[in-house]
């Protein structure tokens, strides 16, 4: 209450110079700034500061041991003209994003619709389905995944029971990326919970009105559920796509940090990590990071531009 009182009190005193104004502002709103301080310190020291530093470093040659050497835009030029691994990582990441996001969202929506039918034990199932999302990005789950999909892993043991000799899902470049896509889809809990909340916001009498009109379940889904859920779909789509662009841990653990076999799991962030911490090319890694920022920003902006065509807000 003290903070509120202090902040809301109108100041009728005249302020002199800029210093006086600052002192006055601190005096008036000191308690408020004090409460904000942990976040402000964290934001400036741990987020904005390093981000700006990396922007500068992206224009330098910097190996951590010697002082950064300013080289202009050479890092960016090299990226697009003389770095096949950069192109490979972009390709792998785009394939991963293009496959994992729609599949995960479709799976999450399907499960949410089943759970939304008012079944018994809903909280239990909701928790069970959400569990992979809690554990999914952990190293432990990636290790477990590696064991499941290894040549002599559980998946192939089960396939052997029905007479199928499965490949090594993670060491065969034809399958390794798709194994990571499956791992991503398995972590559908987070969008599922959001879809479930969105589905519950759709009034049941709209479905009842539609059913009186003779609309089939499919038509109700296409004409009512999807449009009314579109803000939630959009939110999940943007968040999951950004997450997919930033995916790192599964590829790192499953490929042992190499992005192999044959660059098949060389996620963009994994390549960035290699450049930074394996080859100590911090300047180049910083440039890679900023390119990723730009890619995500362009994608997000483009997504927002499309909303007027397919996202229906109620107000």
């Amino acid at each position: 209450m003290a903070a509120y009182d202090t902040m809301s009190k109108p100041d009728t005193r005249k302020q002199g110079a800029a210093g006086g104004w600052l002192a006055g502002a601190i005096r008036r709103n000191g308690a408020g700034y004090l409460f904000l301080a942990p976040w402000l310190i964290g934001f400036f020291c741990l987020t904005l500061g390093p981000a700006l530093a990396s922007l500068y470093l992206s224009f330098t040659n910097f190996d951590l041991l010697s002082a950064p050497e300013f080289i202009g835009a050479q890092n960016y030029v090299r990226m697009v003209t003389a770095d096949p691994r950069f192109i490979a990582s972009i390709r792998v990441t785009l394939v991963y994003v293009a496959l994992s996001v729609p599949l995960k969202l479709a799976f999450a929506l399907a499960v949410a619709m089943v759970l939304n039918r008012g079944m018994r034990g809903l909280p239990f199932y909701r928790a069970i389905f959400y569990l992979p999302s809690l554990l999914g990005t952990s190293v432990a789950i990636a290790v477990l995944w590696r064991q499941l999909f290894a040549a002599d892993g559980l998946v192939n043991s089960l396939l052997a029971q029905i007479g199928i000799e499965g490949p090594s899902w993670i060491s065969n470049p034809n399958y390794s990326l798709y194994t990571l896509v499956v791992l991503s889809v398995w972590q559908f809990g987070s969008p599922m919970i959001i879809f479930l909340a969105g589905l519950r916001q759709i009034p049941t009498d709209m479905y009842e009105a539609a059913s009186l009109d003779g609309a089939s379940p499919t038509r109700q889904f296409l004409r009512i559920t999807l449009p009314l859920l579109s803000p939630v779909i959009f939110f999940n789509f943007v968040i999951q796509t950004i997450e997919a662009f930033k995916a790192f841990t599964p590829a790192f653990v499953i490929s042992g940090g190499s992005g192999g076999p044959i660059n098949s799991t060389l996620f963009y962030t994994l390549y960035l990590y290699q450049e930074a911490f394996s080859y100590f090319r911090m300047g180049y890694a910083s440039a890679l990071a900023w390119v990723l920022v730009v890619i995500i920003a362009i994608f997000t902006a483009f997504s927002f531009l499309t909303t007027k065509y397919w996202v229906h807000y109620d107000d």
Partner: peptide
């Protein structure tokens, strides 16, 4: 009671 109009 709620009209149940399709808002979109």
């Amino acid at each position: 009671q709620s009209y149940a109009l399709y808002p979109h």
